[in-house]
Design a protein around this nucleic acid. Sequence first.
DNA 1: TAACTGCATCACTGATAAGTTATACAGACG
DNA 2: CGTCTGTATAACTTATCAGTGATGCAGTTA
Lengths: 121, 121
Amino acid sequence: MATSDLTYRQLLGRIADRLKAMAEPTRLQLLHELEGREVCVSELVERLGCSQANVSKHLGVLRAAGLVRCRRKGLNVYYTIEDQGVFEVCRLMCGCIERQASREVAEIGEAAGSLAARKGN
Amino acid sequence: MATSDLTYRQLLGRIADRLKAMAEPTRLQLLHELEGREVCVSELVERLGCSQANVSKHLGVLRAAGLVRCRRKGLNVYYTIEDQGVFEVCRLMCGCIERQASREVAEIGEAAGSLAARKGN
DNA sequence: TAACTGCATCACTGATAAGTTATACAGACG
DNA sequence: CGTCTGTATAACTTATCAGTGATGCAGTTA
């Protein structure tokens, strides 16, 4: 389906942008740390064990993607999740991974079975 | 949450890998074309209007990520969605984007309001 | 067998992105 | 005011990735 085209491509682009912002382990961990509470940058740096510049840059990416929001409070800058949907995405992905693992286990089982059968010949 | 660490990081890595595989407009379109039916490469090339090599490479990425599966049938290779969860992810992302757009509209409204107020001073 | 079709892969290019170090900037405090 | 702390940004290096053209390979057909 070519759909309404220009808008269709734009939508795909925006979805891709969001997914790209999430598609990085450090950023996923940042999102996870922010789940349900407001955390300042220095604490995030401490928890992740990354450089401050690195954490700041990743937070910038998340912010640009609209996944996260921040506010100053004295010297610190506190970040919060902007849209809780990200966790649902993670949950779905975990489900996908589990199902994939199950399939792999099943395939290994089949392979072992056919190997045993061949051995019998 | 330092969680159980090695495994935790591995899980984040696997989630990131899957998201990364999806985080590209052309690949999202490929997934969309495959929604609910089996399609061969030449047809996908035609529908997307990309080069065959490009489509093949993107399909390879999707396949490596376990999002898609293929089987030969004569000269053609037919692809299908391996895990329907991807569409749920897209649906969620669309929801996020809509909410973000709403927020932006609201912010513009506020800005316009404060502008009008300032004009009054 | 040779020629053709459909697809995958290779080698390469340009663009994008992650990580690092150094630096700039904002607010608190003396 | 100067200084310190917390954060963001700049400049750079290295790595990863999308796209292209050429080539290889599998399966079909003559």
